[in-house]
Design a protein around this nucleic acid. Structure first.
Lengths: 340, 340
DNA sequence: CTGTTAGCGCCTTCAG
DNA sequence: CTGAAGGCGCTAACAG
């Protein structure tokens, strides 16, 4: 392992000078910089991040906590965050909080505070007060996405508004018999995103003076295509009493609903309108009208906020809670109510 | 920040004793251990991983490199690896190699060797000689999944055999007109998994004395459902000249193929048999017959191998290349050729 | 069983 | 503009 002393010896300077030359410090002659860099390259010198961290306190490493990895929203946002972080010269250490329990505790009391990360990015996890405290005890910034974080910066869409927008779109097309297929999040340690979307759905119905029927909300446990399919079949099973349109809390559920409709011989959108929320990668394939939330954009913005906090030496001019805009993307799965 | 000296002072012992007590070293009185742990807890002491690393050389952190995060195989295996690593007390630092180029170079020449990781797990990335050399220069073990790694341990299924098995299944059901929808991997830095699966398909046809038609292999660029759909439509478009069965290099392509068949009015499996490779989470929903590769099992096994290498002090009794078993999972998307 | 003493590899004052 | 010295927080000999 070639260290800083080897480079210093080779270049005939002190280790202090090597350090300065390699870190673009001011007050080093161009000549020396060049010389040092030459020998550093030649010897294949790679500075030890560990020693750097020990002396500076900075790790150039960001901890990312998320409850799932293998789901669309999470893997997409992770992909984006990773790119942007690496571009900014940061590493990413991943902590997956599968459910609650010992693992989660360990992450917050042991792993994260061990001076291995400069900051924590919480993706859709609702941090408890004690967790936040543990982090702030070691003065680590925490930024969140997918829900608010007390006393810190966060970024999220308005999920109630998303549910409302999707539903209002159907109402504006003349639909009055509108069902919903939505996941019901029960884990109190996560933000209840799907539940919020349901609230928006109900709000829209009420505002429009449309009756809300309990039987027309079909809960699911996950947001898999399979569950969307099953729930939609339930909803559409009795044609005399079926809605003419369906809102889903997630695009994936909508894909399932569209497939269910087809299998029942219903045409989309002629016989049934379907609108989702997310703008999933596969939405255009399914020709799905949906409320877009631009997940990659959110990831990018989150990293930008993080860098501002990290560089800003406390003087950050960010709002605590940033509402990320949503947008209705109209494709072919919704149409005006036919009066046949 | 409370350090080891604070605990030592509080407990009235030396820092060395604190260190020993907290690390379950032998030769410490039970009394002392208890005392030290009490004060450590009370003061909220968390040892600095950085200092630990600097002095021991161990990071308890594993680097994971993968070319994608937001695809089924990768997010699934990552999820599994993360769980198992955390269970074993290791952190996971994620490096996403999007394509080739500067980022990839930087990862191998800068990030990884900076003594931030104890080992590297390469998921489906084909490491170049110089990359392997850079890693072995700093004596970091490298284990791989998804393809062999020269001079190191790796785990993978036999993709040629997978393609063969899928095709032989169709042949055994009486099919002779068998098409394939398969991704063609062009990036030379990745293992050409889909290409291998195609080879297996061709081998099976040849062994069975079945003619192989160029036009019956439809290449795709990715393995999205959308591309599977489009390719299958091409293949099935002209019913006078269409295959009676389709192999796909990936389950996701198969999902697309099944949907394409339905939209063309073909029944699966009565009019068309479809077999995939992977055993994707959604395969049972699509009732897809497929060649299973148990991705989570592979991830688990990889971590087990890694731990053996890390603990084994060089005396590891693992085979260099482990072939992971595959299995045919017969569901409802394939059936005997109808002779109508 | 416990304390003392050196560093791990680097950055950062403080002098020159 | 450069060198010398100190120390970041911890563990690992070596004594006692």
């Amino acid at each position: 392992m070639v260290g800083i002393v080897d480079v210093a010896r080779a270049a005939g300077v002190s280790t202090a000078t090597v350090s300065r030359a390699l870190n673009d410090s001011p007050n080093v002659s161009a000549k020396t910089i060049e010389l040092v860099k030459k020998f550093a390259n030649q010897l294949g010198y790679v500075p030890s991040a560990t020693a750097y961290t020990l002396v500076t306190g900075r790790t150039r490493n960001i901890g990312v906590v998320m409850p799932f990895i293998d789901r669309w929203f999470f893997s997409t946002v992770l992909d984006e965050i990773e790119r942007d972080l690496v571009d900014a010269g940061y590493d990413l250490t991943l902590y997956n909080l599968h459910g609650t329990g010992g693992t989660r505790d360990a992450v917050f009391t042991k792993l994260l505070p061990r001076k291995r990360v400069d900051a924590v990015l919480a993706v859709a996890v609702k941090l408890t007060e004690s967790e936040l405290e543990a982090l702030s005890n070691v003065s680590k910034p925490v930024l969140g996405i997918g829900g608010p974080i007390a006393g810190s910066y966060s970024l999220a869409i308005d999920d109630v508004a998303a549910g409302r927008l999707a539903t209002e779109h159907l109402i504006s097309l003349g639909h009055r018999d509108i069902g919903m297929v939505g996941q019901v999040e029960k884990d109190s340690h996560l933000f209840k995103v799907p539940n919020q979307r349901r609230i928006g759905y109900e709000e829209a119905l009420v505002s429009a003076g449309v009756k809300f029927r309990d039987a027309w909300f079909k809960p699911t446990n996950t947001h898999s295509i399979a569950e969307g399919y099953a729930a939609a079949k339930q909803l559409l099973g009795d044609p005399r009493n079926a809605p003419t349109a369906i809102v889903t809390s997630t695009d994936e559920l909508a894909f399932g609903a569209i497939m269910a409709a087809k299998d029942l011989g219903l045409r989309v959108p002629e016989d049934l309108s379907v609108v989702g929320i997310d703008n999933h990668d596969m939405s255009s394939f399914f020709n799905l009208t949906t409320v877009s939330q631009d997940v990659r954009g959110q990831g990018k913005a989150l990293v930008r906020m993080l860098l501002e906090v990290l560089d800003g030496e406390g003087e950050v001019s960010l709002p605590q809670v940033t509402k990320w805009p949503i947008d209705l993307v109209v494709r072919g799965s919704t149409s005006r109510l036919r009066s046949n």
